[in-house]
Design a protein around this nucleic acid. Structure first.
Length: 421
RNA sequence: GGGUAGGUGCCCGAGCGGUUAAAGGGGGCAGACUGUAAAUCUGCUGGCUUACGCCUACGCUGGUUCGAACCCAGCCCUACCCA
């Protein structure tokens, strides 16, 4: 059941950047191994940047190995200096604990439930006494060696507290605990975690006399060099309350062409053959955007489920199909746009358009709304409003007397519903 | 503790007594062209206001002045150098 194909698969998918000892790992993978990856509870939801490590763990499972996800309820109280230019503000233990709970649920939804172990490192880190930490763990680290780590050396100029300085020790200790409890032998993570992770290898060797491995995947960038995972509204979250399924789906549909093949490999479970077929199709008819749509569908289904996906596809078709919304089925539209921002109005007293745009988050201020309308970037029910004119909403704008769709630019929309309808 | 250079809008960065809501660039938003892509071109990019206009803004607090981002004083912070 366990296979060494895992490495080849990761390589093909562009998910393998570095490995501490590739040949030895390949040999080890002939028998079932246990992998782990850590997730930092820095917010109340994971975002799509975290999807990559999750997918990596999922692939580990698909190839018959075991996967552990660690939620850093303990390390999250300290703060990882890796890749951070400045010391970070500490969250309260209550906040971190709340983040941990929510993130655990999300992790479970992506991984194969009955094959997944989730651990919160607070359960051992918080029990560690200062003396234990210093005698049993700290004794194995020399200052010179720690200072040489990129995560620390990069911060010597700008400043790093003792707190964050010790982070790598705690993360290393995680590896030791998992090795002891679950026989965990491989840690995977982003390449920015290389320093912390290799520190773990050393500590496991010293404390448990066992060889362990580290595998990293590259950090994701878009082909035009923009930061991956950000949209106009900020990060793309997995929590539907923070990023609507519609916005989530649209994020992927809007991927740049050159990124699509890579994203299909990295973020979907589609097979090599399927992906290559999609690529061929895309190259033949790029204007159909079939690759984008498939990518968006796969990822949205995985994160939000089939039902949400269907709604979102309906909404996308209605809004981008160029259909005349006046003739569309209102119930379907209402259903399809359920995940968009929305507000209710009273037909007898419809607020000004600018105010509505602000309430719905399509504009940041009335001035911003005014500029938008002035520039011709505003649509009511898919009808572009003439640049310069200032529209007012009337009862006629409400499809079936119930729904009015406001759109900003090509991609952002929100709905106005009639109260009680 | 001493010295030097600095702290300007989302970021970088010009301005160094009035014509400065503050050059220029980046980023962002929108329009055109396409394919809900990229590239390119164009417009916008503090808030309120139908509008005249009003308010807020150049580290903080005071002061000089008819008038200050710009001058003065004190303070805070950052970087580098010396103890």
């Amino acid at each position: 059941m366990p296979t060494t194909d895992l490495i080849a698969d990761l390589e093909w998918r562009g998910l393998l950047k570095q490995c501490s000892d590739l040949e030895a790992l390949k040999a080890a993978l002939k028998t079932q191994q246990t992998f782990y990856c850590g997730f930092d509870p820095t917010a109340d939801s994971l975002h799509i940047g975290n999807l990559l490590p999750l997918m990596a763990l999922r692939r580990v499972q698909e190839h018959g190995h075991k996967a552990i996800a660690i939620v850093g309820g303990g390390t999250g109280l300290i703060g990882d200096p890796s890749g951070k230019a400045n010391e970070r503000t500490l969250n309260t233990p209550e906040t971190v604990a709340a983040f941990v709970k929510r993130i655990e649920v999300q992790i479970r939804s992506i991984l194969i439930p009955d094959k997944t172990i989730i651990e919160d490192n607070a359960s051992w880190i918080c029990k560690l006494s200062a003396v234990e930490l210093l005698r049993d763990v700290g004794k194995h680290f020399t200052i010179a060696w720690m200072l040489a780590k990129e995560s620390v050396s990069a911060r010597l100029e700008s400043g790093i507290s003792f707190t964050e300085f010790t982070y790598m020790i705690l993360q290393s200790y995680d590896f030791v605990v998992l090795n002891e409890r679950h026989g965990c032998t491989v840690q995977i993570g982003g390449s920015d975690q290389w320093g912390n992770m290799t520190a773990g290898i050393d500590l496991v060797r010293k404390l448990r006399g066992q060889q362990t491995f580290v595998v990293t995947f590259p950090l994701i960038t878009t082909s035009s060099g923009k930061k991956f995972g950000k949209s106009e509204a900020g990060a793309i979250w997995m929590d539907p309350a923070k990023t609507s399924p519609y916005a989530f789906y649209q994020f992927w549909v809007n991927s740049e062409d050159p990124d699509v093949p890579r994203f299909l490999r990295q973020f979907t479970l589609l097979s090599h053959i399927e992906i290559e077929a999609i690529e061929t199709e895309h190259n033949a008819r790029p204007e159909l955007r079939s690759g984008h749509k498939r990518l968006a569908a796969e990822v949205t289904r995985m994160v939000h489920g089939e039902e949400e996906l269907q709604k979102v596809i309906l909404a996308s078709q209605a809004l981008f199909g160029g259909a005349d919304l006046a003739t569309a089925d209102v119930s379907t539209l209402i259903e399809a746009t359920a995940s968009a921002p929305s507000t209710e109005v009273d037909l007898a007293n419809i607020p000004q358009v600018a105010d509505l745009l602000v309430t719905l988050g399509l504009a940041t201020s009335k001035g911003d709304a005014g500029r938008l309308m002035k520039g011709g970037g505003f649509y009511i029910n898919n009808q572009q409003v003439d640049a310069g004119s200032v529209p007012t909403l009337s009862a006629d704008h409400f499809l079936g007397g119930r729904l009015c769709i406001l759109r900003k630019g090509k991609k952002s929309y929100a709905t106005v519903r009639v109260a009680g309808a």
